[in-house]
Nucleic acid binder design. Structure first.
Length: 461
RNA sequence: GGCGGCGUGGUCGAGUGGUUUAGGCAGGGGCCUGCAAAGCCUCGUACGGCGGUUCGAUUCCGCCCGCCGCCUCCA
């Protein structure tokens, strides 16, 4: 049984699903108005790891993640660049998926766009309006939060304390500062859809209720996002569902954010690093490893230094992979789980079932790697080597489940490199170490790391 | 003001009421090696402060200090 922290209950609880072998999950996706940064990356990696683990655990996962392709910031950027909002949105959506692919983040089963669901959103707002839960003022339609039972239950705040903390509202006509926009009337030149309330566009909080309920149905299993979405976004989604007496998500999962010098990474603080910048200097797997080595609900500090240490750690895993891969059937590794050391799999599951304790899972991986290397070091026959390999298979398998693919970078030798290797081996056999060292220097200048093995010189990047 | 989180060894970062340790990285010593690299072995004995509960607390409770977040858009 998988146990997960549920934001609504504020504790770790067994993760129950509607159907025994299926998980329906809705993860709030990006607003595509700029290049994704490390915060987006962390969030995407966290939920990718959750999804992969659910699939490993035998669930069919229906993963819905939206693309918000109409919103104030997109309009603003379109105006600045003198482009259509749709151009801005499709450009940054493409960028998003390009980066996600580099991070080895699985594509969602469905990624609905807000603009494809405008009619359904209008319909929902209309229902709220007819129930007298929504009201109209000069600039749009608002949901009256006071009419929703237990508003604030998800974020554990009561309405009174929310009100007292609310900042001065620009719109004095709202009945409460906490009331939120369902529909915004358009200003001249802005993209607009016609509705019974006039031309305009839906507010952000409506799209996710509509799309999650439409694609996954009432009482779907899991709703996720980063912690900054708990309030107001998820609270407001929930408020709309409650107002319409619809069962909403059964389980809420929120991940922590990336920090910079202790402060939250965000566009408004202008302290962000884009995924592009990270990926140009580091292996994408190093980022995933850092995410895995911290808990998904904790803040995660990512610096050049921590990335560098992660690069080294990934190299250690790759190095073990090179050592053992030839005696492992990589094609059947995943399908033939019975072939993996069951004691290690059990430890892995125990860790993961405890609110996704990926740090423990990774420490297990490194422990296994050390042990397989140690066994291989003293192995003097085929049988002992097989034991070492069997150990390593477990580590490789766990990495695979977590989306961390180990690689052999010693392939793709060009003719020149192969010649140098042959020359060096000849030099070493004739004990011409001066020449051998000289060739080693040449190889390292070409970017190769040189290792001497029982089968001669081996190189990898 | 309300709600919430955090403070761990050189560093990043888990975790736990007590006998044996997270793990990664960095560092010291050793083995291996022609020298390296990789790998292995080994060492460092940490839990913000003050009280309380307990046979025993880093782990539970209270207070204090410091940092951070949400209450407006934010992954």
């Amino acid at each position: 049984m998988i146990n997960l922290f549920d934001t609504a209950q504020n504790k770790i609880v067994p993760f129950e699903t509607r159907k025994p072998n299926e998980v329906s999950m809705y993860i709030c996706g990006p607003t595509v108005y700029g290049p994704p940064h490390l915060g987006h990356g962390r969030f995407a990696l966290s939920f990718d790891i959750l999804r992969r683990y659910l699939e490993y655990s035998g669930f069919k996962v229906i993963h819905v993640s939206n693309i918000t392709d109409i919103d104030d910031k997109i309009i603003q950027r379109a105006n600045q660049e003198n482009k259509l909002t749709s151009e801005i949105a499709s450009f940054f959506e493409a960028k998003w998926f390009e980066d996600m692919e580099k991070l080895n983040v699985l594509r969602p089963t469905f990624n609905p766009h807000a603009t494809e669901y405008i009619d359904s959103m209008i319909d929902l707002i209309n229902q709220l309006f007819n129930l007298d839960i929504a009201y109209a003022i000069d600039d749009g339609i608002y949901l009256e939060v006071a009419k929703v039972k237990n508003y604030g239950s998800l974020s554990n705040q009561d309405l009174e304390s929310l009100k007292s903390g609310a900042r001065v509202d620009v719109n004095p006509y709202k009945r409460s500062p906490m009331d939120f926009t369902l529909w915004k009337h358009s200003k001249p030149g802005e993209p607009a859809w016609s509705s019974p309330f006039g031309m305009g566009r839906p507010g952000w909080h409506t799209e996710c209720v509509v799309m999650s309920l439409q694609l996954l149905g009432e009482g779907f299993d899991l709703h996720g996002g980063a912690q900054d979405l708990i309030f107001p976004h998820h609270e407001n989604e929930l408020a709309q569902a409650k107002a319409l007496s619809k069962r909403f998500a059964n389980h809420w999962v929120h991940c922590g954010w990336v920090t910079v010098a202790g402060e939250k990474m965000s566009k408004s603080l202008d302290n962000y690093t884009t995924l592009d910048e990270l990926l140009s200097a580091h292996d994408a797997r190093s980022f995933r490893l850092l995410v895995l080595q911290s808990h998904y609900r904790s803040p995660l500090e990512i610096t050049k230094e921590t990335l560098k240490t992660a690069d080294v750690a990934v190299a250690r895993l790759d190095s073990a992979f090179r050592r053992f891969k030839d005696s492992i059937d990589l094609d059947t590794l995943e399908s033939d789980m019975g072939n993996i050391r069951q004691d290690y799999l059990k430890e892995f599951q125990t860790a993961m079932n405890n609110d996704l304790d990926t740090p423990r899972a990774m420490s297990l991986v490194f422990e296994i790697v050390t042990r397989s290397n140690a066994l291989a070091d003293i192995a003097n026959d085929v049988h002992k080597m097989k034991l070492a390999t069997d150990e390593f298979k477990a580590a490789l398998f766990i990495c695979k489940v977590l989306g961390l693919d180990l690689k052999d970078t010693s392939n793709d030798l060009d003719q020149n490199t192969m010649n140098l290797i042959a020359k060096r081996d000849a030099a070493r056999i004739s004990k011409d170490f001066k020449l051998a060292d000289q060739i080693r220097d040449e190889l390292s200048e070409l970017g190769w790391v040189v290792e001497d093995t029982s089968s001669g010189t081996r190189v990898h990047k």
